[in-house]
Design a protein around this nucleic acid. Sequence first.
DNA 1: TCCCTACATGTGACCATGTTTATATAGAAG
DNA 2: CTTCTATATAAACATGGTCACATGTAGGGA
Lengths: 109, 109
Amino acid sequence: MPPLDQAFLALADPTRRAILARLSRGEATVMELAAPFDMSQPAVSHHLKVLEKAGLITRGREGTRRPCRLAPQGLAPLDAWLSELRANLDRNYTRLDDLLAEATPPQED
Amino acid sequence: MPPLDQAFLALADPTRRAILARLSRGEATVMELAAPFDMSQPAVSHHLKVLEKAGLITRGREGTRRPCRLAPQGLAPLDAWLSELRANLDRNYTRLDDLLAEATPPQED
DNA sequence: TCCCTACATGTGACCATGTTTATATAGAAG
DNA sequence: CTTCTATATAAACATGGTCACATGTAGGGA
């Protein structure tokens, strides 16, 4: 499975997005992550494995704890793909706008 | 299902990403989209429905054809979520980097 | 009208994913 | 060495997505 597939698939799950959102404020252990999510610890471990395989998080080893952190570069492929699509989209949209020349102003970011 | 879930789930499929990539160069009909993907037309129709529900594409009506176009605003929620996460991540990473400069270097598994 | 094209929908099979319970590993403490 | 804690893994199950085949619908042309 291409890395892009794994990354988008990882983000497609609300639990995993919540985990990432939580991790974005600082690293956390599996127990800390499992607590608020009303979910068993193995389920969270599985989600973390998915996120790790997708390159979105990294895991340290601190005694018996495995603190999780966001991987900064993990979002790069996602962002690159979205940027490329947006660029093509904008070009296509501009072209259409030129053809229509009556409505549909180009949107700014 | 929140719109963010639908959008990421839609992008998590390589076929749908390919459809979006193709549409980013200009609108296309279902038949035009189905041809290169070595897939049945109903399957493509289903993917288009998923993309439409996710707000990533819009569909016109041109006689017997249903040309598909990318929806410019469809990527906005995705981009917003990613940007927010990236902002927090960057802040967290900077803080961690500052902390790590004095203790426990990160190690991989 | 009849037919052909473009597309949608329903069904059923197959496979991937998400979850839980139970168990295994690994480190720390006694 | 035993035990407790933190986490990973395995097995079992349900759910949901994806696909092909068959059929249904709608518009255009003869």
